[in-house]
Every structure is written in C-alpha cells, then in structure tokens.
C-alpha cells in the first residue's frame, strides 16, 4: 500500500544546490527570452512556458543519466534543458531553424533530444503517457538499470491513457517514475472543475505503489523525494508517482488573456518562487554570496544571448526536408 514519506526539510549538498540553481536560472532566462521573442514574432507557434516550475525540472532531471529516458507534455522546455539539451539547439528549434534539436520540424511542443535522453514531448494532453510505459518496458526487456521519468500535468490525469498506463506499469512493476506537475490549472480551468480528487497522488490510490506529494517550489524536497524513488527504481522496483505542487505563473500559452486568475494566489506564488527561494537558501547556507548569486543570473542571461545569436545564424531547413522525412529509411539510425 501507499507509503507516505515527507521530504520537507531535506538538505542539499552545496555543489548539488548550486548546479540546480544554475540550471533553474538557465531555464528561467531562456523562457523569459522566448516570451519576448514570441511577442517579436521571432519564435513560432504555440508556446507554453514553465516559469514557476523550474525547480521540478532541475531536481528531477539533474539526477538522471543520459541513458535514462524522459517524456514530457506540451510544457517541456525546462525538462529538455535540465536533461542537457543545448540552449542554442533549443532556441534554434523554437525559431524553426535547421540547427534545432529537431531541425526545425517539431517546434516547442515536440522537443526530442535522444542524446541526452529527452525522448519526446506531445501536443496532446496525456498522449504520450503510454509511450513512457513502453520506454520503461524496453528498459526492463533490455535488463539494465535504466529508469524512465514521465512528466505530465494534472490535466492529463483525467485522460483515459493515464488509467491504462498506470495499470500496466503497476501490473508489470516497471521502472517508471510518474512525475506530475500539479500546477492547479488544466489549460484554462482549475482542478476542481475536472475532478473531485484534489491531489493527483490519490488518483493512483487503488494501486499499491509508492506515491508522494511535495511542494514543487521546495527544490530540496523535490530532490530528496525523487532521489528516494530513483534509488528504488534503479534496483528494479517501480512504478512510483511523485506529485509536485507548483503554480503556472504565466498563461496556458503565450498570449493567453488569463481572465481566470486569482490575484491572491498570484501574490502567494510569487513569494514562493522556486528560483528566488533556492537562491535565498543558497546564500543563507553560505554556498555563495550575494554578488555570486547575481552573477548566476547574469551568466544564464549571457548564455541565452549566445544561444539566440547561434540560433539566428542557423539557416532555415531546406523545404524539401518536409517531404523527405515522412518515412524513416534504412539510413536513418537513432542519434
């Protein structure tokens, strides 16, 4: 039966904490720049930002190896970056350039970076939950200690694919960690309008696997909870579900008029911003001083600027690629 463990008050080592903070700044600066570029019509299409959720991406992905697969939904920039996707290739992808992670054919909602284990993202809510089950089944058939992590939002939990995937992962005891980012909104409506079950971890109550709900803006807590699950999954156990309570500080998509938002919650979550919180913690712990802290942000901004420059230098893909890449051929081997 479900075991509850609390990770609040968890401790991070200094170098781990600093790595997470740097990763979160890279995601934050990248996404803020993407928002500006979107308004300037330099990145295309539907853009979903994860500002406010960087802590989960960093605390989960920075513990995984390149050969551990992750899947994500439509809000995937942070996961890909934290897993190791180069910023320049990310930016180029969002700009539809040949130098992008998907050569400009996927865009924001379909990021793939196999080299670093970013196996895919989807534009259909819950659409790739079973793909992650397949990835974990592959790990099991292969016989190694690889682990798969599946990122999804609370909106995906009401989709049939969720129940089918959870049953199979539990039945076959697959090394799969479900990571739900419960940000309080399914697109434009609050969770209460979608389900009577407030906590996503309670939706898997019928299945006897481990689950835990943590404050997603408490980075040490996410790190600690995921670490415990990861240790078990490496040992061949699974699945588990980690629910991270976060807040989507921007609209569902860039340009969303957001008439559904509650100002009180806004203020509360601004106070709980994971980047600021971890930074304050880092200073408090003496991992770095105020100047060094500010330089972390500056370095991230520089990196994003460089990424933008490299992306802009990348050419658009040859239009004929659109027809060439419909079918895989013998020559196509996974990167």
């Amino acid at each position: 039966m479900a075991k509850s463990r609390t990770a609040a008050g968890a401790k991070l080592e200094a170098d781990t904490g600093l790595d997470l903070l740097a990763t979160m700044w890279r995601i934050r600066c990248f996404e803020e720049r993407v928002a500006a570029l979107k308004r300037a019509f330099k990145v295309y299409g539907l853009i979903h930002l994860s500002i406010g959720g960087e802590g989960v991406a960093a605390a989960v992905c920075r513990q995984l190896r390149d050969d551990d697969g992750i899947y994500s939904g439509h809000r995937a920039h942070g996961h890909a970056i934290a897993k190791g996707a180069p910023l320049a290739k990310m930016m180029a992808e969002l700009m539809g350039r040949e130098g992008g992670v998907c050569r400009g054919l996927g865009g924001s909602m379909h990021l793939v970076d196999r080299q670093h284990g970013m196996m895919g993202a989807t534009g259909v809510v819950g659409g790739n939950l079973p793909l992650a089950v397949g990835d974990a089944l592959a790990a099991r058939v292969r016989g190694g200690d690889q682990v798969t992590a599946m990122f999804f939002g609370d909106g995906a939990v009401q989709a049939g694919t969720f129940a089918e995937s959870v049953n199979l992962a539990a039945l076959w005891e697959l090394p799969l960690i479900f990571v739900c980012e419960n940000n309080g909104f399914a697109e434009f409506t609050s969770r209460a309008e979608h389900s009577t079950i407030e906590q996503v971890s309670d939706v898997v109550a019928p299945y006897g696997f481990e689950r835990e709900t943590v404050d997603g803006s408490d980075v040490p807590a996410v790190w600690e909870a995921f670490r415990a699950f990861l240790d078990e999954a490496r040992g061949g156990r699974g699945p588990m579900l980690l629910e991270c309570l976060t807040y989507r500080r921007r609209g569902h998509y860039e340009g969303d008029p957001q008439q559904y938002r509650d100002p009180a919650a806004e203020a509360e979550w601004e106070r709980r911003d994971p980047v600021a919180r971890l930074q304050a913690h880092a200073v408090e712990q003496g991992w770095l001083d105020d100047d060094e802290a500010r330089s972390l942000e500056r370095r991230a901004l520089e990196e994003v600027k460089d990424a933008e420059r490299v992306a802009l230098e990348s050419s658009y893909p040859d239009p004929s690629l659109a027809a060439e890449l419909v079918y895989a051929t013998e020559e196509c081997r996974p990167a």
């Binding site: 989709a159 969720f162 089918e164 979608h194 389900s195």
Partner: peptide
C-alpha cells in the same frame, strides 16, 4: 475497467 473510457467516465460521473 482497463479501458481509458472507464476512467474518464467515472471521474466525470463523480464530479
């Protein structure tokens, strides 16, 4: 009960 439709339906009916 292993069909997604079961899960989607029971959630809505309860809600």
């Amino acid at each position: 009960s292993k069909q997604g439709a079961f899960h989607e339906s029971l959630n809505l009916a309860s809600l």
